[in-house]
Design a binder for these strands. Structure first.
Lengths: 255, 255
DNA sequence: CGCTAACTTGAACGCCATCAATGCTTGTGG
DNA sequence: CCACAAGCATTGATGGCGTTCAAGTTAGCG
């Protein structure tokens, strides 16, 4: 059992109950819920309903799940592993988002997929046919609000991504990215002080709008300045928090 | 009556009916609606309901409407003019979006505004207190779907913005921006073949993640290559459509 | 008509892209 | 278990592009 497996297990614990899991941060969180905490969106009833029409599918690391432009026959709900959503354009590919256990994808399009997706790690997911999905959404008015919450989630993420990409220096983008990843792990409830980066360097580079070479240099720069240390390619630790925050400072999480 | 006024009138015709106007592109558009067409989201009943609790407010060009971090007391619905939404961070300011007549803003936050906004042109807007807004939303389950549509709209825009910012060359970003503006005017129903840019150069630069100097050079470059011509700082015409599309090519509108 | 702010232009520098070569890691088959 | 191969990541050198700072120009507004 590798260290990576331990961390993956941490990232996805509480997934042992059967059926799809969708979580999101409620933007209008009120009452006892910790602000900014992620929680399960679906009721037990809804989950079993979905589980009945869902099938489990596996994808190898690097395997393509669907391609931009394909007719959209199904949506997916990640149970385990990380998925990369990307678009291929004239010069190289552009990563729109990384998807984590509990995320749902393949849904926000009409007719055809507007992104390609591939497994960044080995992936286990629920596959839900769109007709079935639609039937359930239609017959369940109560899901409306949940859909809104999930959309807000996606909106926030897209806005943060844009904010990140508006930064001019590579180290700034990388720092903001690391801050986002750390934030994500905290909201998921992971306790380790390392930041876990499941995806390839080249995918991170594509997400940051950089070339792999530039990304590598940015890592090196942060390392040289003793702001971070890279245990291996998938584990980063922040050494100098104040210097770190000085670079990522914009109220990145106030979107 | 200046030419600018004519175009503004074009941009905002059909606003003569009293009451707030919110429009959006239905991502699941079906039936007779032209795909990608914008249409009014609110029913007459909803509009009058909102109008009763809304007040008309005016803002001068350049005037700040609210500031990032302020407690959110009200949302706004633009009747006339253009609003710039931006965030101020360590190095300069970053424009998240330009808002047009029919757009609503000041809503997507909890407690405090997460953006600053200012009038890019003289602005007339409806101001709707948040308590009243919330009361209406709560008492009207039918609005749920409309909110979803509006959110999808915002999501698409944020994703396009990110796609734009992922481009490395300034001329590419500018070309994509112009394509977006043109697309916007077409969906609004404006017939002129010019692209109208109501906002300042510096705001455009901030939206594109560039300095004003770099933006100016990008304009000049497109002009030199006979791809566009700038009648004045607010009116651009595309001369060479094929060359233009070759730069902006990525399926920008397939989000 | 004059003032002010915004925009444009120029020159120098710095950062990132590009291309190519090396090094590391992972997975495969002997 | 080791050897090898293929892909990914890093490193180096060079050039292009955008930033920066400053000066000159235009446009907008009183």
């Amino acid at each position: 059992m590798t260290l990576e497996m331990v961390i993956m297990a941490n990232l996805t614990k509480a997934k042992s109950i059967a059926g799809p899991v969708i979580h999101a941060v409620d933007p209008w969180a009120s009452g006892s819920l910790a602000k900014g905490a992620r929680h399960q969106i679906l009721s037990e009833e809804e989950r079993t309903k979905l589980a009945r029409v869902a099938s489990i599918v596996h994808f190898d690391k690097g395997e393509q799940i669907y391609q931009q432009g394909d007719p959209a026959y199904a949506a997916f709900n990640i149970q385990n592993g990380i998925v990369t959503a990307y678009r291929t354009l004239a010069h190289g590919e552009y990563v729109t988002s990384f998807l984590y256990p509990g995320d749902i994808f393949g849904l926000s399009e009409q007719g055809c997929y507007s992104n390609s997706t591939k497994a960044a790690t080995p992936v286990v997911a629920y596959r839900i046919g769109l007709p079935a999905m639609r039937r359930i959404l239609d017959s369940n008015a109560g899901l409306d609000v949940e859909v809104i919450i999930k959309l807000c989630d996606g909106l926030r993420e897209a806005q943060r991504h844009a904010l990140l990409l508006a930064q001019k220096r590579a180290v700034t983008r990388l720092t903001m990215f690391l801050a986002l990843q750390e934030h994500l792990q905290v909201t998921i409830g992971d306790a380790t002080s390392d930041i876990y980066l499941p995806m390839d360097r080249s995918s991170i580079a594509a997400y940051l709008g950089l070339t792999p070479a530039a990304l590598s240099r940015a890592f090196r720069m942060l390392d040289l300045k003793k702001m971070i240390t890279c245990r291996d390619r998938h584990h980063v630790k922040i050494l100098n928090r104040t210097a770190f925050n000085k670079l990522a400072d914009p109220g990145l999480f106030e979107c």
